[in-house]
Design a protein around this nucleic acid. Structure first.
Lengths: 185, 185
DNA sequence: CTATGTGAATTTATTCACAGCA
DNA sequence: TGCTGTGAATAAATTCACATAG
């Protein structure tokens, strides 16, 4: 909406986009403080975007590392969607000697042994796209390197200290949720 | 656990894996009927897997189509994780004439105009990995072709008739959830 | 009029607590 | 003893309803 130059939006409007109740929107906003909505009009979109970015701490550029430059990893490196949230995939790592030194999306692939340099480089976010069996040890190395947030794409539960936040995306499991809503055939 | 030949598992055990309360497990199971747990022992893992697959309707092979054979699409085609839930990515479509006819993971890439053949081919699941701007029209074509479930990877809200179930995965937005849990630096 | 912001009411989810079974 | 299965109790999320503001 912001990109389309829209000025304001009501809770009913937003709720419609999400398929939820308008008071849910207003209540959620109220938990975080004053969103400065105008009765009879709605919320100023510019202000809304700023406020939400601030709440989610997306108002600074974050440098992220990606580990595992396979098919999925390459796809993510090339994904254009990260920019709008202020992410910059600034480093890539792999264990395969053939890949090391090659460039992908202007980032040179490094050996995983270099992971420990992340702290110095002020990179504290990571994306794991390694095979299932390597997931936990990759996470361990990342935590040791000072990483505080991990987006995990391997279909494996990862154990980390509780100061570190992990979000796991299991693509196959997401697909597996669909049949439940579908008739048998 | 099943693959590791484990015989049984308790609700406490399962809850530990998920970081939730054991009674949550038991309560959830009870909503779906008798899971035949043995007091003092736990649940038989074989039985559990079967029961859950049945509830989620994962007990038959499902044929899925993928639309948009770019970086992400190719990665998903090559992803080994779908098999265990009984998915078979049986068709791939793209709009780029250069890609059409080429093979990827033993599947020949077809022109998107062929989407309407899906019904005949008994494919009623689809994965959308097209650019943002093409997402809605792709969804429309899929619905017209009889698809009943869509896994949408484009960062765009998709509108479909309510008989069709859509699950959207916005990778950038998932990553965007991490900073909230992290100190500013 | 239209839409916000929020207490109160309602609904839903989670946890407790314990009888009963292997 | 150790765990299931489930009503009862509690906690959390959602929705209602309305006073109030542009």
């Amino acid at each position: 909406m912001s990109e389309q130059g829209q000025q304001s939006v009501s809770s009913r409007n937003l709720a419609g986009c999400l398929g939820i109740n308008p008071s849910q929107i207003r209540k959620d906003f109220s938990y975080f403080g004053d969103f400065g909505g105008t009765p009879g009009v709605g919320y100023n979109i510019q202000k809304l975007v700023k406020q939400i970015n601030k709440i989610l701490k997306l108002n600074i550029v974050r440098r992220a590392a990606l580990v595992g430059v396979g098919n999925l990893g390459s796809a993510i490196m090339a994904y254009p969607g990260f920019g709008i949230y202020g992410f910059d995939i600034a480093a890539a790592f792999d264990i395969n000697p053939k890949k090391i030194g090659r460039k992908i999306e202007n980032v040179t692939i490094e050996d995983v042994s270099n992971l420990r340099t992340l702290k110095k480089r002020k990179i504290n976010l990571a994306i794991i796209t390694v095979p299932r069996d390597a997931a936990q040890q990759t996470a361990d190395a990342l935590v040791k390197a000072g990483v505080r947030g991990i987006l995990n794409f391997s279909p494996h539960h990862i154990t980390v200290p509780k100061k570190v936040k992990v979000i796991t995306i299991d693509i196959a499991m997401d697909l597996a949720r669909l049949p439940y809503y579908m008739p048998a055939d």
